[in-house]
Design a protein around this nucleic acid. Structure first.
Lengths: 82, 82, 82, 82
DNA sequence: CATGAAAAAGAAGCGC
DNA sequence: GCGCTTCTTTTTCATG
């Protein structure tokens, strides 16, 4: 199979794959940068796990966050964990 | 507590968090771009799952991949899976 | 290669694999049971995500949990998130 | 709040949580058993990673696996990776 | 909504 | 012994 159809498929495939691979590299680079920041923060005495928690909280919709906290406190209250 | 130590911690914390948040946004944007490419590819009749497999294979170190395949074939041979 | 060495390897391989596969099945069954419980809980109006959080908290060492909560509150306080 | 509604919620919550916690323990125990088997296998000269790959392959539906391999081979062929 | 894939978190093993 | 990397598990997200 060496006709035009084949070449079209090949060109499309290569294009898709190369574009994704390029973006994957960029994404990985960013991930590495983030890891570096956390590593540096750890060296400065910060607790990375807590940092990640804070960042996650900030990313949440404020209303939803409040709602979840209420819910969690409720469950903890019922269970005597508060 | 409003002394210099506190402000230092605050500044450091804010710096860390803002840098990570910025990078998280960038990372998400790239992820969206990749998703778009796959969506388009799917529309053109490509099998996205297989595309992802191919990309993963290409990302592997060739020597390691060959080595693992040999080992895997050996085990499969012993087990009659080949 | 059909000698004793080969058979020994075959027998060992089969034993290992079958034992693991059996345990994998058991593990999966338990996972399914857990999922069922959460599904039922959800039907009864409980928030599954919060349930999981509570269970995780209960699994933690009490001292470590307290320490982490203090840390999180500290960071939130510094950032004006409290 | 000490009325019947509260107690019902408490009883339900405790039931859910205790059942899940119990199952979590069981699941962990099985995971430990599996780890022991792989550790022993490693001591006998087997490559654990490959063992896990073989087990994963065996767990797959044969038809689906064959179908995916055909598709993958097609793409690899087009890309000259075969 | 339920399944399956991607991301993140957590745990374990290995090296220095 | 501690960090670092790899692997496992968990959680989250998207899609049908």
């Amino acid at each position: 199979m060496t006709g035009p159809g084949h070449n079209l498929a090949l060109n499309q495939l290569e294009s898709i794959i190369q574009r994704v691979e390029r973006l994957n590299e960029d994404k990985k680079a960013i991930g590495d940068d983030i890891a570096d920041i956390f590593k540096e923060a750890n060296g400065n005495g910060f607790d990375v796990k807590t940092l990640k928690t804070v960042i996650k909280l900030r990313a949440m919709d404020p209303d939803k966050r409040a709602e979840q906290e209420v819910l969690l406190d409720t469950y903890k209250g019922v269970l005597g964990m508060s």
